[in-house]
Nucleic acid binder design. Structure first.
Length: 358
RNA sequence: UCCUCAGUAGCUCAAUGGUAGAGCAUUCGGCUGUUAACCGAAGGGUUGUAGGUUCGAGUCCUACCUGAGGAG
């Protein structure tokens, strides 16, 4: 269990992504009542650029601003630096980048991203890291990893030196990098463990590498992270992969897949994907997933959902996102239950025998 | 009855007489710490009809058909 200033989070947990102070398509009531999500993500990069972290601070941080009283983890912007390739320049002191909104130039440093996340008031903050592209050669991966380690040290130094009276209670997680190279990953991990953080993340996965490699890196890193502390693999995964990450010791995951794919018409079920735009669902009276008990599946047909999608109606995004996130969170609930019951191995086998999502 | 304008993909429209295209729609893919209600691909045509001029016609000429506007 993760004890945060905004409640206890049972692990292993999947965290819905709410980049811009909203899980797109959903109200906080959907998240809390319908999905019972205990923790969601926010993003330093996006919120710093718009509406600005100082404004959010005035509204009582992200929690007050977006009316969410459960836990929030904020990503540092390291991944945005990676995906904004071309708009940025990485230097020793930090990353110089141009806003994707208006081209303004900004500098993120390990220190400034801690400050921004303090203003956002998240329960868990992430250290600024460099997320290298895949593939990358060993020498470049080493340089990148070493920079990530230096940045992590600076972030922690700054974090510990924050003035007691204004400091927001918050955990800070460093991020293991090192490309797909075992030696680099292990060296990075060792350095970061010495920071004695409250939790650790494995980053740089799901950047285009084959699935086996993501799993291999997880296999390598997670067991060597302190077992009594939460271990977070960033940016994963497909629904059927969730139990496999858990089996490797992962406590926390997040991914845009359920929410983004929902908006793009891809609904996940235990029987595989339902691509709702397909003509075969034009007059299908069945729910998306007969086994699902979400609001969408309890009340609406595939034909209706297809109609909403084809008509570009905004309700589609809401109903589809409710379903996909419920599917993800139900998988995690089932996993947690089976762990408590001592039946996780059987549950893992059940999931493995299911039809893969694609 | 006459005059003018217009008929090109399902829709709205491009195309100096020289390989008929686009957007939307349709169908199908993709999406992994959200620059993403996004991106990509495919199918789809006797250019209103019938003649003519020309090496070559969506384009020029003639007649007809359909529609819009105008005159009487």
């Amino acid at each position: 269990m993760l004890h945060t200033p905004h409640g206890i989070v049972e692990t292993p947990v999947f965290m819905p992504v709410g980049t811009q102070a909203t899980v797109k398509g959903l109200t906080p009531a959907h998240l809390a009542d319908e999905l019972d999500a205990k923790i969601i993500l926010g993003n330093t990069y996006h919120l710093y650029l718009r509406p600005g972290h100082e404004l959010i601070r005035q509204f009582g941080g992200l929690h007050g601003f977006m009316h969410w009283d459960r836990a929030i983890l904020t990503d540092s912007g390291g991944f945005q630096v990676f995906s904004l390739n071309g708009l940025r320049k990485i230097r020793e002191d930090g990353v110089l980048f141009r806003s994707h909104l208006n081209g303004d130039q900004h500098l993120f440093t390990p220190e400034s991203t801690v400050d921004v996340q303090q203003a956002l008031g998240s329960d868990i903050a992430m250290v600024l890291d460099e997320c290298p592209a895949y593939p990358i050669d060993w020498h470049k991966a080493r340089k990148s990893m070493e920079l990530t380690v230096r940045w992590a040290r600076r972030a922690f130094e700054h974090f510990h030196a924050l003035p007691e009276e204004t400091r927001v209670r918050q955990a800070l997680f460093p991020i293991v990098q090192g490309g797909m190279y075992e030696d680099l990953r292990l060296r990075c991990l060792e350095e970061l463990v010495s920071l004695d953080a409250e939790g650790y993340a494995v980053g740089g996965l799901s950047v285009g590498e084959p699935r086996e490699l993501s799993m291999a890196m997880t296999d390598l890193c997670v067991p060597k992270l302190p077992p009594e502390k939460p271990r977070y693999v960033m940016g994963v995964g497909m629904p059927e992969e969730l139990p496999q990450y858990v089996a490797r010791g992962v406590d926390m995951m997040d991914c845009v897949m359920p929410s983004r794919n929902a908006r793009n018409g891809c609904l996940f079920t235990a029987e595989g994907r339902v691509v709702i735009k397909q003509a075969r669902f034009r007059d299908d009276p069945l729910p998306v997933d007969a086994a699902c008990r979400c609001y969408t599946c309890r009340n609406f047909s595939r034909a209706y959902l297809r109609h909403l999608f084809m008509a570009g109606e905004m309700l589609f995004c809401t109903l589809a996102t409710i379903h996909n996130l419920r599917h993800y969170l139900d998988i995690m609930r089932r996993i947690r239950k089976s762990i408590l019951n001592g039946h996780f191995p059987e549950t893992l086998r059940d999931f493995s025998s299911q039809i893969p999502v694609n």
